[in-house]
Amino acid sequence: MQANIAPLENISVDDCHYTLTNDGGVGFATPAGNLAVRGLKVSRSTFTAPGGIGASLSQVEGSFSQTAFNGGTAMETTDSVVECTGCTADGSRPLGGTAAAIGVKAYGGLVSWSGGSITVTGPAESKTTEGNVRVSAETRRSPAPPLIRAVIRQEVVAQSEPQVDGSNTFANVFPPINVANVSKVAIEVTVRRLAPGYPAAPIPTPAWAMIDANFFRIYFAGVALSPSTYRIAYRFTEVE
């Protein structure tokens, strides 16, 4: 599909199935070096290119639904914005080969993949996705992507006396290192009663705010927690 005179718009492909018999070809292509393809809609179709690329899309804005892509690279896009719903991508190359299998690859632009599955089989370097590909939690991925554990930049576990401000209560937290990014901060808060017994009033869920890079405050609205009766325990964490 080539837009070499004017951009192509509002093209639909339904119930089409293409399988290449030669090795290394492209099942469905909008080649680079042409004009844009906008409003492309493909549904209930199959594009298979053994050892090649199931679909290669350049400068495409469009959507695919219930469509299967099969190849050494199942789908690759360049400078495109593509939505895939209920689709399957199967990238497959020989296990002993040197080329990696890729499920979905995006060079620039964005591929949004919702539902369906993305599967790769091949050498260890094979990937289900590469580049700017957003995959929904409902999508089956094989092999599953590795879990990425957050690296803790700093952590403080402590308790402090509550400070009463009229009918409210607050507690201050002073991390030892200036916080680099507040969006990577978490504060877990619990209230400990020093002696057995029930609180005189329900204790609300606390809120917290950053006052300065090394100064945070925990707030309890509408309740005065006496320092002779309570302690505020907290776990402050900032990750890399």
Rank of each mutant, 00 (worst) to 15 (best):
G131E: 04
Y230I: 06
L40C: 01
T237D: 04
P206N: 03
A233H: 03
M1L: 15
W113F: 14
Q59V: 00
G97S: 05
N172S: 13
E138P: 01
Y219R: 09
E240I: 07
L147R: 11
G131P: 03
E61I: 11
F215S: 15
A6H: 10
T48K: 12
C16I: 15
G54D: 05
A144G: 00
V173Y: 08
I11H: 01
A68D: 14
Q163N: 14
S45T: 06
A209D: 13
V26G: 04
R38W: 01
L40Q: 00
N22S: 15
I118H: 08
T77C: 03
P162G: 08
P143E: 03
K41D: 13
G109S: 04
P145D: 06
N10G: 06
T128P: 07
Y198C: 07
P123E: 05
V13S: 06
R193I: 10
E130W: 04
T119K: 15
A74R: 10
A195Y: 04
N178Y: 06
P50G: 02
R149W: 05
V111S: 00
L95T: 12
E161M: 09
R44E: 11
N181Y: 05
G115I: 07
N172W: 11
A29R: 13
R217Q: 15
V82G: 04
A89H: 00
G108C: 00
T98S: 15
P196A: 03
S183H: 10
R153F: 07
A137R: 13
T98Q: 12
T128C: 11
R134Q: 14
G222L: 02
E240R: 11
A144Q: 12
F28V: 01
N178F: 07
L20P: 02
T73F: 11
